[in-house]
Design a protein around this nucleic acid. Structure first.
Lengths: 356, 356
DNA sequence: CTGTTAGCGCTTTCAA
DNA sequence: TTGAAAGCGCTAACAG
């Protein structure tokens, strides 16, 4: 039975060790020079009483609680999961903990949740891809120290860490164009998402830079079933001459592929499919999915690096943008027409044979 | 520029409103009968100053901070992600936040991390599948209020919420046996994992109850690449007469399937494959993966329900065990021999045609 | 090197 | 109904 009495406090330790509370505090915090004899008695008392300092009291005195919050729109998104993982590991190494706040896609609550979370913690990581830019701009300064993920922001106090979706998209289109594709389809993500806008920008850049290449956009979404449900629309596009499809992200691509198979389309023989994010499962898909790799854990680690600096009072660093890296796998290959001319073999990446 | 001065305190509000701190506190907490006029002035002052109460100070007084911790061995595991999601949403609805502590598989640190996390929070959720039972038994009482996930424990103060892996395994074997399979292979998870032990128990139960059915165990692991790497061993087993393989979990199965395909084995024509957990991707695999469904978010919600009761001082409830539900998809079908006799069609589930 | 003494910001008796 | 005052448990000046 755990007794319901008050937990032991520093006073109990001081009493038992026959010293002042200040000395106990010093010993426990390794401050100044403390007489070894006293230190020993304190340590004895501490272990005898099983004492542990109150985090709350310490927080009150220090004005910080060694905890940072991460606000995400959806914990089920592999990207945020990866960032959370990287962040929590990096932060833990510095003695910090991470509080998660899933806003459950309630865009309206986001700002309030973020402020509340920030208020409980020393700093905050904000992932709010759908928050209107104006609202974000107003909110950001209230959140500092803070790091914003996957969005650009010109607040000098709030650095951003993110993925260069535009560049990644452009690289991806170039990859497909190099394979010989000319008519592409893009399965768009949520309209309000900032990374969706970035992707579109990359798409436009690519089309501009690549005469003869066109990209049609089909509204879709960001999840497995969104991809699955887009199967028919994609099939129709393929019948109309499209030879490759770029999914908003890997989840969409992974949902789409089996549907295309059901509809009798072979990948990549009839149509190439590419994703974005390079989730772990991408290389184990059938066929292995070509994707743009995003360093999820590394993103989290960098977020922590920025955050730690801000907490320490250092000035905000420059925005950090990771350029996605193409992971060419078997789901993208030359289009049917080109294949008849050049043959498949040279276009298939060697590693598509051995995903591990 | 945010000024570096102290944040506004209740004293500032009291001063500005021309009342005592006690009154401000009362108004803000809706205590007792407060003169409407005073309340109004307080509210004015609060909004004028943009005051928000200090969480730390409040925590010190109340002895709680409305936060619970969740300790997990690996945040990348879909099961824990799902539980975290369900927990954080349910807890948030009651005004609680969730702190995550990823022990990064460092079994040695687990207990220390858990105690530290508990110390920062009002309660804790412990996911420690590999912690030795003796250690867990010793640790659990020190963590209360706490809920242990996916492990049995006879501590009357620490309830458990989990999955009946033994039963699920047995149901899965029965499913395969009913399809006509007699020689099965099980790709085992981490030896020290408690759920692995439970699965083995279910396997033994099934074999005992089903004369003529045998299950060979192959060491494997719990992740995608573990499954992938088991491909050759599985192929060898198939050549030796095995007709179905049960993976430790879906990740293993999803890693295994493409490897089997590479090795020239067709699923389910040459060998049936089943997973466990029913991750979202299972139904979008090629072929759709038969799996035992585990209510991940519901688990999280139930964990919160238990935890909330404990925090409120209510006695610990009985252990809660969810029975996994079979999701029969196209990856499992009658074995080659049986198929020749009975034909494929009747054995294929209708829903395998339309995953969504 | 050690003890005394103020607080950190808030809640809560206890009087008035 | 309201205010004064005493802590919650700890740290940090400041003396000694």
């Amino acid at each position: 039975m755990a007794d319901r009495t008050r937990a032991t406090t520093i006073a109990d330790v001081a009493l038992r060790a026959g010293v002042s509370q200040a000395s106990v505090s010093r010993v426990l915090n390794g401050k100044q020079n403390v007489d070894p004899a006293i230190a020993a008695r304190v340590h004895d008392a501490v272990s005898a009483l099983g004492y542990t300092p109150s985090i709350a009291a310490r927080s009150l005195v220090h004005g910080r609680n060694d905890t940072v919050a991460m606000v995400v729109p959806d914990l089920e998104n592999p990207l945020f999961q990866g960032i959370l993982k990287g962040l929590s590991l990096a932060a833990a190494a510095d003695g910090y903990r991470v509080l998660v706040a899933d806003t459950a896609e309630q865009a309206g609550e986001e700002a309030a949740i973020a402020r509340e979370a920030r208020h409980r913690c020393d700093a905050i990581v904000l992932c709010a891809p759908r928050m209107p830019a104006s609202q974000l701009r107003a909110l950001a300064p209230l959140l500092a120290p803070a790091v914003v993920v996957n969005r650009s922001l010109d607040d000098p106090a709030v650095p951003t860490v993110g993925v260069d979706y535009a560049r990644g998209m452009r690289d991806l289109v170039e990859h497909l164009a190099a394979l010989g594709h000319r008519r592409l389809v893009f399965l768009a993500g949520p309209d309000a998402s900032s990374s969706q806008a970035e992707r579109m920008r990359g798409l436009r850049d690519a089309v501009t830079a690549l005469p003869g290449v066109s990209v049609d956009t089909l509204p879709c979404g960001s999840r497995l079933d969104d991809g699955y449900r887009s199967g028919e629309a994609v099939a129709a596009a393929v019948r109309a001459g499209t030879t490759a499809v770029i999914a908003f992200n890997d989840l969409v691509a992974l949902g789409l592929m089996p549907r295309l198979a059901e509809l009798g389309l072979r990948i990549p023989d009839d149509v190439s499919v590419a994703g974005f994010d390079d989730v772990p499962l991408a290389r184990y898909a059938t066929p292995p999915l070509t994707s743009m790799s995003v360093p999820r854990s590394e993103l989290g680690a960098q977020v922590w690096s920025r955050l730690r600096a801000l907490i320490a009072g250092e000035p905000s660093e420059h925005a950090l943008l990771f350029r996605p890296r193409l992971e060419h796998r078997a789901s993208t290959a030359p289009p049917p027409a080109a294949r008849r001319l050049t043959g498949v073999r040279e276009a298939l990446p060697a590693e598509s044979e051995v995903p591990a």
